[in-house]
Design a protein around this nucleic acid. Structure first.
Length: 430
RNA sequence: UCCUCGGUAGCUCAAUGGCAGAGCAGGUGGCUGUUAACCACAAGGUUGAGAGUUCGAAUCUCUCCCGAGGAGCCA
């Protein structure tokens, strides 16, 4: 038994392939069975004169997505998609599939999402999941090669990190807890113990967002580095993204090709990325649109982000936003206390924000004051304040949204294709 | 939460006030190189639900349900 991805090294040899029937075309005295096994697709050819009449009849009866084991000789043939085909001489029907709901013709998104468990078998979804797997591997290898330790933050948390409106509440014996919306505060505790850590896990936000960029359950990667400042973390972020993109372009050519992703814009990605301040971003926006000026102090919306990112071929880093529109834990710029030492990375090609990060406030008194200003309760944050009581150091980190990064890499129009089972505001099944 | 669009055969859609239709899937038959193969035949309907207007409603009105796109917010 071999995997389809290996066929090229078995030319002329008799092999057995275990898979599913992807498609069938028949022509009286010849049948073409397209077989997939999760590693690739191969066309099988059955000639009436080469097999028993029972096998020939069976081949014409197998329904789409039936599981089959086929035996035959591998042959190079230009007429076959993929360049190789299998001259089948035996078929074992493992399970005869009921009429398959996903047809060869197009489907609406509602139908596809309701059949996500089957939709995953299609060519495009296969390619996306292969790219997702590659990106995940690249992330672990990047951090491992730099001496980071993977640090798992809890998913059930006692309180909001940044606010209470967007949390999923879960009963917890006689009290309640919330699904984590970020592992960051815990990563900060981790970096004080291990120096360099990163979290990698699902996070949850009950935002009532209905856009192509939002999921209620999504995966975040959040590195946190002790003694790092904003510049250090910006450098880390651009090295990180560059490493991932180069890895995918190098190792997942075939999948990007299936996705019809033009890889040229990805091949351009290398450090350093352009860096502009929030103020420079405002100037850029207002130069372009004199009539509806963006006021200083506003956070950028989707159209503004899209405009800025379209001005650059590389991801762009926007740093030092007004403190009033940013989170309580961000350190203020010592040179201008109205600004936060924070950074957002916008992906090119109009994809918008993929990373948000900052230098963290490391002074106890200042942090206590921020909690008050943001109307956050002190008691659940006591452990977090402890980090500033016992050997506080400057430290910084960022969070990357895995699915948003993938949407850009795959140039997908919607983030929901980037995760096996997407969760959105009005869909939590299958 | 707000704005916009939509819901007709298993799927994708057509029919704009006058006989509810096509392609694909599924069924039957044919075809020796197909590439979402093709050809023929048969089958397939509570037009999202309820109410109203009308001689007559898939089509117009109202309410509700469901979905999609966008905004705000965010990764």
């Amino acid at each position: 038994m071999i995997w389809i991805e290996e066929v090229s090294s078995y030319e002329g040899k008799e092999v057995e392939i275990h898979g599913w029937l992807h498609n069938r075309r028949s022509s009286g005295k010849i049948h073409f069975l397209t077989i997939r096994d999760g590693t690739g697709i191969i066309q099988g050819v059955i000639l009436r004169d080469n097999v028993s009449s029972d096998t020939f009849k069976l081949a014409d009866r197998i329904s789409q997505e039936s599981s089959i084991i086929v035996r035959g000789k591998v042959r190079e043939d230009k007429r076959a998609p993929g360049g190789y085909e299998l001259e089948i001489n035996g078929i074992l029907l493992v399970h005869s599939a009921e009429p398959y709901p996903i047809s060869k013709k197009s489907h609406g998104i509602d139908f596809l999402l309701s059949h996500r468990h089957l939709w995953l078998r299609s060519r495009r979804q296969y390619a996306i999941l292969k790219v997702r797997g590659e990106v995940i591997l690249a992330i672990h290898e990047f951090f491992d090669s730099r001496g980071f330790t993977r640090f798992d933050a809890p998913i059930l948390t006692p309180s909001a990190c940044e606010g209470t409106t967007t949390l999923f509440e879960v009963p917890y014996f006689d009290s309640k807890v919330y699904l984590s919306q970020s592992g960051q505060l815990y990563a900060e505790a981790g970096c004080m113990a291990l120096g360099k850590v990163y979290t990698f896990g699902p996070t949850f936000r009950a935002e009532k967002s209905k856009t192509r960029r939002h999921l209620t359950e999504f995966w975040q990667i959040e590195p946190e580095v002790a003694y790092a400042n904003l510049d250090d973390i910006m450098k880390l972020a651009e090295d990180f993204v560059t490493y991932i993109i180069q890895r995918v372009v190098e190792r997942r050519k075939e999948e990007l090709n299936i996705l019809e992703r033009d890889t040229k814009p990805l091949e351009l990605i290398k450090t350093p990325f352009p860096r502009i301040t929030y103020q420079q971003a405002i100037d850029l926006l207002n130069k372009q649109n004199e009539t509806s000026k963006t006021q200083w102090g506003e956070d950028f919306g989707a159209p503004q982000e899209a405009y800025i990112s379209q001005q650059f071929k590389l991801p762009v880093l926007i740093h030092r936003y007004p403190a009033e529109c940013k989170a309580f834990y961000m350190k203020r710029d010592p040179e201008d206390s109205h600004l936060s030492l924070c950074v957002d990375m916008l992906a090119p090609e109009g994809y918008g924000e993929i990373i948000g990060g900052s230098q963290r406030e490391d002074d106890l008194a200042t942090l206590e004051q921020r909690l008050q200003e943001f109307n956050l309760p002190k008691e659940p944050h006591e452990w977090y304040l402890d980090l500033r009581r016992y050997g506080s150091v400057p430290h910084s980190g960022f969070g990357l949204g895995l699915e948003r990064l993938l949407a850009w890499i795959c140039k997908s129009h919607h983030i929901r294709e980037m995760i096996p089972f997407p969760r959105t505001i009005d869909r939590s099944s299958p």
